[in-house]
Structure formats: structure tokens, C-alpha cells
């Protein structure tokens, strides 16, 4: 990763954490060859779209590939007996 891209990753992480449309601290960001690649998981489709939007707003000169997924919940599952 070149020097400029390293700073951009830091700035985008900060934006994704602090922007109230996203508020996510665990989005994985890779920037290479003029493209931002975003991976991770968020609770809703709206938040997934907002991750891409914030990235595009911050660095409109780069392509954004948004591979964020939406967390799907399963049923609660079997109880665990703790300490027995």
C-alpha cells in the first residue's frame, strides 16, 4: 500500500466510526490500484449502503467496491448449562 493510501484508510476508518449514518468500528478497508474495497458486517441494508456512501463522499476519486454483508439472525439455539 502506498503512503497516500495508508492515510486514506485511517481517514475512512475515522469517518465510518464517527458518521452517525454508519457508526461502525470494524469495517475492513483495503485500498489498492484506485479502488476501495469494503468488507465486514452491519445490521441493516440501509447501513450497508451508507458505508459505501460515506466512502464515496470521502474519496470520490476512487472506485468503491462494497462487499459489506447484512447480519442474518438465526433462532436462539439450545441453552448452555454453565458451571455444571
Amino acid at each position: 500500500m502506498n503512503q497516500e493510501y495508508q492515510y486514506l484508510v485511517g481517514k475512512l476508518q475515522e469517518a465510518l466510526a464517527c458518521d452517525a449514518r454508519v457508526g461502525a468500528l470494524d469495517i475492513k478497508i483495503t485500498i489498492a490500484h484506485g479502488r476501495v474495497h469494503l468488507t465486514g458486517q452491519v445490521p441493516t441494508e440501509e447501513r450497508r449502503a451508507n458505508v459505501g456512501l460515506v466512502a464515496h463522499e470521502l474519496m470520490p476519486q476512487l472506485d468503491v467496491r462494497n462487499d459489506i454483508t447484512v447480519l442474518e439472525l438465526s433462532e436462539s439455539g439450545k441453552p448452555e448449562a454453565v458451571g455444571d
Binding site: 439472525l73 439450545k78 448452555e80 448449562a81 454453565v82
Partner: peptide
């Protein structure tokens, strides 16, 4: 002491259930 991380993105469930004192 048993420790359980119940972060929803990790457990991928609306809740986990633990029983004490069977």
C-alpha cells in the same frame, strides 16, 4: 469463572441462553 461473549454479531442470534444451578 465462565465468561461468555454475547456480542450479537458474534453469536448471530437474538440472544444466547445460559442455565445456572441445574
Amino acid at each position: 469463572i465462565p465468561v461468555r461473549n454475547v456480542a450479537m454479531p458474534l453469536i448471530k442470534r437474538p440472544y444466547a441462553v445460559y442455565t445456572l444451578g441445574g
